[in-house]
């Protein structure tokens, strides 16, 4: 009798894995800690800018009321510069409004717009993506054609159309960014669903007599969740950029409400003598978007390394 023992050849890795160098480890840790801190600060700023949501508009982080200017304090430089007053840490604009307070209040707009839009677009995109990927055929063909168009249609033009018909404002921005934003999610989720459709556990469910609806909800959806979370995190930055661009152009959040984009735009008229009005909100946008992207990358590496772009 022969007994066939399978021989498993254990290959030694060519290079012994020694782990990351000390410096690389520190860099890696910093690339999580720094963006996380920025994001947490941003959320705190957004929530506690003032407590108007429990009826206390005068209490909060923002040192001054964001829309009340003091005429004699207009165009004051930041406190650390010559001529600055310590009560206006980042200076004032041409109406004598405190730049720091407006930045703190602007965080609320940027964050809430992007979270709202991400929630709406992810929900629609996931539903359509799962249906397209699982159903296939003409349904898939049709949805994906619409996705192609939505992905290459300039959201800005749509935002302008909406601004003309319903007027610029908070909800116009949310609406304009949502109308096209779902397409990216639909495309990603459809790809995942297509892959899952042929997997054994879906076949098993089908054999057991599960309805298409049930399979999509209970078997496909939970398996696309990881990729979904990654893309959602990565789009926080994108949405903040989009909102600020619309507000900058004047078709987003409009005066007197503070938003980072419109603050940069406001500062243009006094650029030669008061650079701080435009500079600080822009730095905030850059910092937050950068942090959002880094956090997204980190979550992707944890949840779904397959998605990693080289």
């Amino acid at each position: 009798m022969f007994s066939i023992t399978p021989t498993i050849e254990v290959k030694k890795p060519e290079k012994q894995y020694t782990g990351l160098s000390r410096r690389a480890r520190i860099v890696r840790k910093l690339s999580l800690v720094v963006p996380l801190t920025v994001m947490v600060l941003m959320v705190i700023m957004a929530i506690f800018a003032d407590l108007s949501w429990i009826g206390l508009p005068d209490v909060g982080l923002s040192p001054k009321a964001p829309n009340d200017g003091v005429a004699r304090d207009k165009l004051l430089p930041p406190a650390f510069m010559e001529g600055g007053k310590s009560e206006y840490l980042l200076g004032t604009d041409r109406l004598g409004r405190d730049v720091l307070s407006r930045i703190i209040h602007g965080a609320r707009v940027s964050l809430s717009v992007s979270l709202l839009v991400i929630a709406i677009t992810a929900a629609i995109g996931t539903a359509l993506g799962v249906i397209a990927g699982y159903m296939g055929g003409n349904t898939d063909g049709f949805i994906m054609r619409v996705v192609d168009v939505a992905l290459s249609f300039p959201g800005l033009v749509l935002a302008m159309l909406l601004a003309v018909s319903i007027g610029p404002g908070y909800w116009t921005v949310v609406f304009a960014l949502s109308i096209l934003g779902w397409a990216g999610y639909a495309r990603l989720v459809r790809g995942e669903a297509l892959r899952l459709r042929d997997s054994d556990f879906v076949a098993q469910a089908r054999v057991n007599g599960a309805s298409s609806m049930r399979i999509m909800m209970k078997h496909i959806f939970p398996n696309v969740l990881n990729s979904l979370i990654v893309i959602m995190t990565l789009s926080v930055g994108m949405m903040i950029l989009a909102e600020s661009a619309l507000s900058f152009l004047g078709i987003g959040i409009t005066a007197p409400q503070a938003s980072w984009g419109s603050m940069v735009s406001d500062g243009r008229t006094d650029l030669d003598r008061a650079w701080w009005i435009s500079a600080f909100p822009g730095i905030c946008i850059g910092l937050v978007v950068l942090s959002g992207n880094f956090l997204g990358d980190w979550i992707r590496d944890k949840l779904d390394p397959r998605l990693r772009q080289q």
Partner: peptide, 15 residues
């Protein structure tokens, strides 16, 4: 390039 808002970069370039 993907994090900084283009409109801000342009304004800072003018400055």
């Amino acid at each position: 390039g993907q994090a900084l808002p283009g409109f801000w970069v342009a304004i800072m370039a003018i400055l």
